[in-house]
């Protein structure tokens, strides 16, 4: 009986440790600002829904209702603006432009030099012409 118990225990532990010996990969944890903004937006919407419910149930006066609602709506507006700003075409264009410039800067190659004797193009770092052998 006790052998059976040892067998069960060891087999189960073996099964649990199997993933340790497999080819492994890692996950990347992303901390997204947009996600946080999205949560915030949902929260403001929830607040507005609650407020409307409270008003419908007669828990606050009309002036309070419209004032508070206005403040929530503008808060929602601010949050949405932030989200939109992050995805606006103008911003994207600018980012692409910047990236483009960055790309060019990186790929900008020093000028090739041409041989004064025969006119053929040579690599910038060359000291002698590939074709005629004259010093550059």
């Amino acid at each position: 009986m006790s052998y059976l118990a040892y067998l069960i225990g060891i087999l189960l532990l073996g099964w649990a440790s199997m993933p340790l010996f497999k080819k492994d990969s890692t996950w990347i944890s992303l901390f997204m600002e947009t996600e946080e903004l999205e949560n915030k937006k949902q929260r403001v919407y929830g607040n507005i829904a609650d407020l409307e419910f409270d008003y419908a149930m007669g828990r606050l006066s009309e002036s309070d209702f419209s004032a508070i609602r206005q403040s929530f709506v503008s808060e929602a507006g601010r949050v949405i603006q932030k989200i939109e700003d992050q995805k606006s075409p103008a911003l994207m264009d600018r980012i692409n432009q910047d990236l483009g410039k960055l790309g060019k800067k990186n790929s900008k190659q020093p000028k090739k030099q041409s041989c004064l004797n025969c006119g053929s193009e040579n690599l910038p770092e060359a000291k002698f012409c590939m074709k005629c052998g004259k010093e550059l």
């Binding site: 199997m18 340790l20 492994d24 990969s25 996950w27 944890s29």
Partner: peptide, 20 residues
């Protein structure tokens, strides 16, 4: 380490604890 294999092993460990 954020390694998937380790997390999977931990999960299985929890199942094994439950089993025994």
């Amino acid at each position: 380490t954020k390694r998937r294999g380790l997390l999977e092993a931990a999960r299985r460990g929890a199942y094994v604890a439950f089993g025994v």
